[in-house]
């Protein structure tokens, strides 16, 4: 049973992709960098090249972290659906298989100024 109800009951998802005016949601999170309290929520057209996601909103958002300047974007390890993932920077989110409300994570081994400070 998918809901406890008196008769058949079908819900309607509120955050369907068609409600986002041609865009989609993407969540991006920098592992072990918890200066940022939660994964970022971005709303972008699915045609956005992956490189643009990185050089645009992501680079701007991570600036406050002391490790930001040292990130080598060509060397970071990526995860999607919590599994290793190799994005093609020149291709779009859609072509990279990044769907609506997908969670992208990235790791930068060796970089962790705020964790090692104590």
């Amino acid at each position: 049973m998918t809901v406890k109800s008196m008769k058949d009951y079908v819900g309607v998802s509120r955050d369907r992709v068609e409600n986002f005016n041609g865009k989609q949601l993407v969540y991006v999170s920098w592992d072990h960098h918890l200066l940022f309290a939660s994964p970022f929520l971005l709303c972008l057209p699915p045609e956005t090249p992956f490189a643009e996601l990185v050089s645009g909103p992501l680079t701007a958002l991570v600036q406050p972290d002391p490790d930001a300047a040292a990130v080598d974007w060509s060397a970071v390890e990526w995860l999607k659906d919590n599994a290793p993932f190799t994005p093609d920077f020149s291709r779009s989110l859609a072509a990279n298989g990044i769907g609506h409300k997908d969670q992208i994570r990235f790791r930068t081994p060796g970089l962790n100024a705020l964790l090692n400070a104590a």
Partner: peptide, 18 residues
């Protein structure tokens, strides 16, 4: 346990965009 219920959640931050 009850997905038909929770898919309907109105989430404030996505709503800022939708």
């Amino acid at each position: 346990n009850e997905p038909e219920k929770y898919i309907q959640s109105w989430l404030p931050m996505p709503a800022l965009f939708s």
